[in-house]
């Protein structure tokens, strides 16, 4: 058994990552998911959230947005719509998006179709700000 995990992260636009990592935390659909080498095969959907991996003592945070994670034979494949590292995030834009989403949520009714859209936007903005600020 290898003592590292091979992490491959791809978005529709490009392959974001292909690195060896020691451990990995992902925002799984049913809750936060911690992965270590030797994990049993698993396929899960991901929510909007923060994905963290530790590689040789350094910790990297990535904001991800919907996707899937598969682990098999110590290879982790992550398919996500978007993936942004802390230094790729435009904090001002994320904050503006957060403000917009909050305003919209305050005025919209719960039944409104847009409510869910704005709620998702709020989530994304929150995660971005969190990641840009160095994670939790």
């Amino acid at each position: 058994m290898a003592d590292t995990l091979k992490l491959e992260m791809v978005t529709p636009y490009k392959q974001v990552l292909s690195v060896e990592v020691d451990e990995l935390t992902a925002p799984g659909f049913v809750g936060e998911l911690g992965l270590l080498p030797g994990h049993t095969p698993l396929l899960t959907t991901l929510k909007v959230g923060q994905l963290t991996y530790k590689s040789g003592g350094t910790v990297t945070n990535i904001a991800v947005n919907w996707g899937y994670l598969e682990i098999e034979d110590d290879t982790v494949t992550v398919l996500v719509d978007t993936a942004e590292k802390a230094d790729e995030i435009d904090l001002a834009r994320a904050k503006a998006a957060l403000g917009r989403a909050e305003d919209a949520l305050n005025t919209l009714s719960l039944e409104d179709k847009k409510y869910k859209v704005m709620e998702a936007a709020l989530q994304r903005a929150l995660v971005r700000i969190q990641v840009a600020g160095g994670g939790h």
Binding site: G28, F29, V30, L33, T40, P41, L42, L43, T44, T45, Y68, E72, L79
Partner: peptide, 22 residues
């Protein structure tokens, strides 16, 4: 083909449900 059973979260139908449109 892996003989070990996969774990699906939340469950298989749900995963398939989201994967297929993708």
């Amino acid at each position: 083909v892996n003989s070990i059973d996969y774990i699906y979260e939340p469950d298989r139908t749900e995963v398939l449900e989201q994967l297929l449109p993708k």
